[in-house]
Design a protein around this nucleic acid. Structure first.
Lengths: 158, 158
DNA sequence: ACGATAATTTGTAATCATTACAAATACATA
DNA sequence: TATGTATTTGTAATGATTACAAATTATCGT
């Protein structure tokens, strides 16, 4: 998501209001790369702004998503996660313990075909689903495996 | 997801049972590229197998996800969607009306870096979030736009 | 600085997807 | 075919998220 100042200007220009609740939520979210859930945020916000309502938090998160400032995603743990980081990156998600790890993005965005022409793209995300080393050791194992994460070779010093 | 025959063999080899419920759900899901929700499937399955329980459907879907045969994803409409298509493709998702369109994949999977080495990758997915032509016309417009879907140029006949 | 206007927030209650659980059932193997 | 065990079922519970209407407050024009 973009800076608080930019958001402030744009919201005002639209006839919206920059309330203390929005400001605080924006600030808390902007610096958080831990893929928090709504409840994660609420627990941290409540002590700072005790009057804050869950309803307000949800509506603020939802509008950030609708504006394209924040991406919502699902790790399979039953909670909706939010990510303010719209810079190119991908996530590696364990299908059993639902741990999420960010990885820097190296693939190029695609040129989209005819049948989606006119679609206005705000965010791109890429996810790699699989099983972390810990969960591989447990009883169940995945039926199909398309690959394994390989370490990128560090160039040798000459 | 893979063929019913392959799933049947693997489940049996593990000491599992191939029940009529699992078979029917597998068959219904395998041929469905509409990104159905659990409820979508239930509505269609119930007339065929009236005794089917929602609990069974959920547990069957969950195990397919854990096995890496089906991918679960979230369009933002409050429902969990399932996709049996693990071939390389991406989705374009409207952040307002939550419509989903598949597009053929052209980017290459990344080589993942050190800190996720050992992670066993089962599925990769790529999503493009934005606003479809219809939703662009409505009142709200996204604050930031990283690009627009462009039609792929059709080579001219010579 | 003030007041009018409309956007936003709040709290409660409702909704709805999903899961827990324990008894009943049925598949697979010998 | 009988046995053991994985699976299914139905109901009840859980828990995230939303609806709604009254109260509040930011913004803008004066």
């Amino acid at each position: 998501m973009r800076s608080i100042d930019v958001l402030t200007q744009i919201v005002r220009a639209r006839g919206g209001k920059v309330t203390s609740q929005r400001l605080l939520i924006w600030q808390m979210l902007a610096q958080d790369h831990s893929h928090p859930t709504a409840d994660d945020l609420y627990v941290r916000l409540k002590p700072i702004l005790p009057g804050l309502s869950l309803t307000t938090l949800y509506s603020t998160l939802n509008e950030l998503v609708e504006w394209g400032e924040v991406r919502r995603f699902d790790t399979g743990d039953g909670h909706t996660h939010f990510d303010p980081d719209l810079t190119p990156h991908a996530e590696v998600i364990c299908m059993r313990c639902h741990r999420v790890m960010d990885v820097p993005e190296v693939t190029q965005p695609m040129v989209l075909p005819d049948h989606v022409a006119g679609f206005q793209i705000v965010t791109r995300s890429e996810q790699y689903y699989g099983f972390c080393p810990i969960c591989q050791a447990s009883a169940l194992s995945p039926i199909s495996v398309i690959g394994e994460a390989r370490a990128i070779q560090t160039p040798e010093r000459s």
